[in-house]
């Protein structure tokens, strides 16, 4: 009995101590600590509405979690998607806050680039993800090698069409470097397969209505075209989401980027396959490289290319889901 009482008292004390020492602390003191000495990174994303940039953001936050004792990341978003003016303001604000690094998409905008240049001059690292600004100094790009990815897509085109196709390309914004590089790489396949002919190139400006208009317009204006290639994510996502099954106007449709729409398109047979960029890796490596410069005084390389993967229906599981 005496021992039971002793143990009860000890247990009660331990419980009380644990209650205040551990549980309360974990609950009420659940705050960031010691960030003054951490590497402060501001990641300015154009948006996180779709899977692409949310995946990049997830990669950034995953790296922050893995290096939580060394890195603190603040993700900033413009109030409107792709509002470069607001993104520029966010850059200026980060510069005023004297952050250590800024992770941004490379956008060819004068004020935007000037703000970034000002940041670089203030000693702030500027890291481009997804889209590169090649002449920016000092320079670090983390993302897809778009030219090589275009070449790979051409090889897949040859494979699915057995080297004979009349192709229409649906791109995003005109003169957007990433897309232009993909188209350049893609067209190189003609040298090997003369029966693959690229008959037209259209731009969708990243919205579903334009994609559907272009889809119908191409068929009307060029009924001989049997293959459609969407080198920007919106095209494949729109077509995959809109059609429950392949209406059969095009024999083959090849698309870009992971999204619910593109996966559904593969599942229904609307899309032959998609090129998936490793966006998570983009965000993760961008943070790692910022830390690398901070700790070691240099980057691994000025251009860090992340993986791309060709995904078809054979890569889906029994329930039609894609598990990377």
């Amino acid at each position: 009995m005496k021992k039971v009482i002793q143990w009860t008292v000890i247990l009660s004390l331990v419980l009380v101590a644990g209650f205040f020492g551990v549980v309360l602390k974990a609950t009420l003191f659940d705050r960031e600590d010691g960030v003054r000495d951490k590497l402060r990174i501001t990641a300015i994303m154009p948006h996180t509405d779709q899977g692409y940039w949310s995946s990049v953001t997830e990669g950034i936050l995953a790296a922050e979690k893995d290096y939580s004792d060394q890195v603190n990341v603040r993700v900033e978003l413009p109030q409107l998607n792709y509002n470069v003016k607001q993104m520029t303001e966010l850059v200026n604000r980060a510069v005023a806050a004297k952050v250590n690094a800024i992770i941004v998409q490379g956008i060819e905008n004068e004020a935007y680039l000037a703000a970034l240049q000002k940041a670089a001059e203030a000693g702030i690292q500027v890291i481009f993800v997804d889209t590169d600004i090649e002449d920016f100094v000092p320079h670090l790009y983390v993302g897809t090698n778009n030219l090589e990815t275009g070449i790979m897509l051409g090889e897949k085109l040859a494979a699915v069409t057995q080297g004979k196709a009349k192709v229409a390309i649906l791109s995003g914004e005109e003169n957007y470097p990433n897309l232009e590089q993909r188209v350049t790489g893609l067209k190189k396949i003609s040298a090997q397969y003369p029966d693959i002919k690229f008959l037209r190139l259209d731009y969708d400006n990243y919205d579903a209505l334009t994609v559907m208009n272009k889809y119908n317009l191409i068929q009307e204006e060029n009924p001989e075209i049997d293959t459609l290639i969407c080198v920007e994510g919106t095209g494949g996502q729109t077509l995959g989401s809109f059609y429950a099954e392949n209406p059969g106007e095009f024999s083959h449709i090849l698309a870009f980027d992971y999204s619910e729409g593109t996966i559904q398109g593969i599942r229904t047979g609307m899309l032959d396959g998609i090129v998936i960029q490793d966006t998570h890796e983009m965000g993760y490596r961008a943070v790692e490289e910022a830390l690398n410069l901070f700790l070691n005084g240099g980057y691994s390389a000025n251009c860090i290319y992340t993986d791309v993967k060709w995904v078809t229906s054979s890569d889906l599981d029994e329930e039609g889901h894609y598990v990377p």
């Binding site: 003054r36 402060r40 510069v95 005023a96």
Partner: peptide, 18 residues
């Protein structure tokens, strides 16, 4: 002190810039 949050650090640095 040690519970220095990111937002506060940014503010103090921005005040310094100002």
């Amino acid at each position: 002190n040690k519970e220095y949050s990111r937002e506060i650090v940014d503010i103090t640095c921005t005040v310094e810039t100002y």
